[in-house]
């Protein structure tokens, strides 16, 4: 696992935006072999989306041959609702880039057969040969996607009841009316995320500091589902200074010291790829 620390959320967004752009461009996606990207919602990834939009407008990045899968969507919330994840993704990202609508996949929280919808989603991911890079964020309770504390670390896309913490945190988007916050969501599972060839997680703000510490300084634990990332061979977490508040000084120093070899790792990875060796080499431990 790599941990990259930047001064503020904007710098975090630029770092991840550039990183993803490089991965897409190096991949040289085509209509037959598109780059498959997993995407989150929430406030943390917004600076990343802003930077990606800038790169598209500058012409140095295109989503013409990118297929996206979103992590989650509320159940029963109309697609046009101002807080639905369809609305979020369109407003914050898809409307500003050049992705063809047919290449965008978001779970349908209004499907008649919700279980069928989830299974079809997993199947569709497989059809595309799995996800190349999954970008994620975390909740204050350490959840990745809507995999709340206690979720199975082997979980797949499914219906999930939201934790009370999450409902409280989201009430601010529903006029502080707790009753108006949806109680359920469809979400990819922890295992769905871990299946992707690479995972990049954005963590910003002091409120996420404890969750970050639990996820990377303690053991794998289903009460902090992000900790499952420790089992992934090619994971990157990018955080701002505020989010490091609960980390040991030792941890911060260690990750800062290994950042400088990042480029070498990248170069090695590219070289292996060029030789047709697909084995990921991201782990520094």
């Amino acid at each position: 696992m790599r941990l990259i620390i930047r001064d503020d959320p904007t710098s975090v967004g630029e770092y991840i935006g550039n990183y993803i752009a490089k991965r897409i461009n190096d991949f040289k996606p085509t209509p037959e072999n598109p780059f498959v990207l997993g995407l989150p919602t929430g406030s943390s990834p917004i600076p990343t989306y802003k930077h990606l939009i800038k790169l598209v407008k500058e012409g140095s990045l295109s989503f013409k041959n990118v297929v996206t899968f979103n992590m989650d969507e509320y159940v029963g919330l109309p697609r046009d609702h101002s807080e639905s994840y369809h609305t979020f993704m369109f407003r914050e990202f898809f409307s500003h880039i050049d992705i063809p609508p047919s290449q965008v996949n978001i779970l349908d929280g209004n499907a008649k057969d919700l279980i069928g919808e989830c299974n079809a989603y997993e199947a569709r991911i497989k059809e595309f040969g799995g996800i190349e890079l999954f970008l994620g964020g975390i909740g204050e309770d350490g959840h990745i996607a809507f995999n709340e504390p206690g979720s199975s670390l082997a979980s797949r896309t499914r219906i999930k009841t939201l934790a009370y913490d999450t409902i409280l945190a989201n009430a601010r988007f529903f006029n502080n009316d707790i009753a108006a916050v949806p109680r359920m969501a469809l979400t990819v599972g922890v295992a769905t995320v871990l299946d992707s060839r690479e995972v990049v997680v954005v963590v910003s703000g002091q409120r996420k500091a404890l969750a970050l510490s639990k996820a990377i300084e303690e053991g794998v634990n289903h009460l902090w589902t992000l900790s499952a990332l420790q089992m992934h061979p090619w994971a990157l977490i990018v955080v701002d200074e505020d989010a490091t508040a609960e980390l040991h000084v030792k941890t911060v120093k260690y990750f800062k010291s290994i950042e400088r070899v990042q480029d070498e790792v990248e170069a090695m990875h590219d070289a292996l790829r060029a030789k047709g060796i697909e084995e990921p080499v991201g782990s520094m431990e």
Binding site: T87, S95, P100, S102
Partner: peptide, 13 residues
């Protein structure tokens, strides 16, 4: 147009 509906339902941009 309702841009969001056009994108997700008509699948056009």
């Amino acid at each position: 147009l309702d841009a969001q509906r056009t994108f997700f339902l008509r699948k056009e941009r």
